[in-house]
Amino acid sequence: MSGIDWNDLYRTTFPELVRFLHRKVWDAERARDLAQEAFVRALQHEPRKPRAWLFQVAANLARDEARTVIRRKKHLVLLKAEAEVMEESSGDPSADLAEQERWVGVREALDTLSEKDREALLLWDAGQSYTEIANQLGLAVGAVGTTLSRARKRLAAAHEELQKEKTDVARR
């Protein structure tokens, strides 16, 4: 298998891949499924640069996943699913709710970023190097820092703004 230690690669990359995918599909189980699927494909194809390949495939899988979702329908399903999760959760319901709210807050803040800025930020957060991000997004390495700088500022500002809005609404 071309000298790649797939076991080691799997151990180190799988969590990063799930982390990356989770911010795209916002479903932990689905993110794990897609990460596994990316690894299955990698093992089948044995790419020469498996790590970058995995993230590319993961991004494409997530994109295709998004395409297949009819948001309006899924919202209905999600609402129902979330309700069921709440009911089924054996843990602290308020903690579950708080986690959901945190996720929503992050998601909304990420949604304010441009696609490229968001992608760069998520790839960096998932452990990709500047060179890997540059390759995946078609950027110069020198432009990755600028992209990340912009993305981080926007994320921080948007998250703060959204939290403030929610606080204001809660006070009313």
């Binding site: 151990r11 799930v18 982390r19 993110a31 930020l121």
Partner: peptide, 29 residues
């Protein structure tokens, strides 16, 4: 500070990741 703030925000939505068995994965492939 900006970088740390962004990192913290993303950390708010970090999923718990259990690592499935690689051997099973490979066998499946």
């Amino acid at each position: 500070s900006v970088r740390a703030r962004a990192h913290d925000i993303l950390g708010l939505a970090a999923p718990q990741v259990e690592l499935p068995s690689f051997e099973e994965l490979r066998a499946y492939v």
